[in-house]
Design a protein around this nucleic acid. Sequence first.
DNA 1: GGTATTTTCCATCAAATGATGGAAAGAAGC
DNA 2: GCTTCTTTCCATCATTTGATGGAAAATACC
Lengths: 221, 221
Amino acid sequence: MAERRGKGRESRLGTRQRIIAAAREVFGRLGYRATTTRAIAARVGIDISTLAHHMGSKAQIYRAVLESIYEEHVRMLEEAVGRLEGMELEEAVDEIVGRTMEYLFRHPEVPRLLLFATVGLDVGKGGEAKSHYVPRFLDRVRRQAERLWASTVADKDKFEILCMAMVNLMATFTGGAPFQAASLGMNADGEKYRRLATDAVKTLFLPLARNSPRLPSDAAR
Amino acid sequence: MAERRGKGRESRLGTRQRIIAAAREVFGRLGYRATTTRAIAARVGIDISTLAHHMGSKAQIYRAVLESIYEEHVRMLEEAVGRLEGMELEEAVDEIVGRTMEYLFRHPEVPRLLLFATVGLDVGKGGEAKSHYVPRFLDRVRRQAERLWASTVADKDKFEILCMAMVNLMATFTGGAPFQAASLGMNADGEKYRRLATDAVKTLFLPLARNSPRLPSDAAR
DNA sequence: GGTATTTTCCATCAAATGATGGAAAGAAGC
DNA sequence: GCTTCTTTCCATCATTTGATGGAAAATACC
């Protein structure tokens, strides 16, 4: 009982991964409340009872999904940051925005789950928030940003809320792509909308990189 | 049967308004799915059956809420635009952002319902979108903006997506205030967060007003 | 092959929820 | 006072949904 190995373990992990992938899709599309364990199970092609056997309750499945996304997203971030080595500030912003938007467009459930947490729709009937990993991730993003652009940070509060602004903007443009694109009479999956959205983010944040605001209250060194 | 007048009608309208106010609050807090007709009725202090008598189905209540918000929001917008008469571009942006943020902070259900529509969580079990008024409102905002800043519009697509960016940003900062503020270690209702969020939006969009981008593709005159 | 463990599914439960019918209460008009 | 229309509530239904127990099937272990 203590030791499981060989196919037993492998197949178990395999099922778990398949379940998490399906749950990511469904939760990301419908949100926590509207998602049913039956829908997830159906997507995997198993019974809800089997689902419960592997993952436990609905809340635990959601938690596992967030954990999976947290790890993947952090990996993406570190990778992107690694590429910024030796870049000018402007070039770095262009690069990081481009890479991130590309990633978010490819995995729309990521910005969507972030938005669900933002508006507090990641709660069950009891009202307990379920997005444990989201605040942690946002913290990580801001710390990363501060480390990269420490020299330009004058007012920490202002810098942090601008970080949030960038995250929010990228999240709404990618996670809300179908709605936004439709509103503009475009195709959400088309290259045109994606390029426009990405360029808009760059347009807004590049000026900040150009004339980096060195304000008097720069006591952090 | 054809004519209802006097107190009968008044009290009916009164009840309707009270119901819509309660529904605004609950729908705005929990979203469409998580909101129960019982919760709305309880907030008004009536039975769900009375609720149904006055408003019809849950979907119809939601529709009435959106209609109410649409009208109020448009009124706010027109009023704010009216004040821009004769202002410089920069001053106008500062003014409109300030007024709008103030309004959205005071009525958080407005940006929240917009965000719900953005992520497509305004749907019932069937999957039918319920936010009829939202696209119409966004259209109005963009047309208004274009009329005001027609002279600076070079690339219409770019201008429109920047409008959406501003709307998205203001919506996430106000509609998601509790989450955003908590993430920054602030109080969502405090003056500090509200001022920072408002200033952030201004910081991002004022540069666009300054060096208004007159690009070659300016064929609209 | 035989046993133990794991995995899978069927059946079912209890709670929540949107909706409705019908009775009772209230208001209006005469 | 009587009738008609409106308003309100109680009771109830059908459906959905998260969860679980237990049997059957599959797999691993020796």
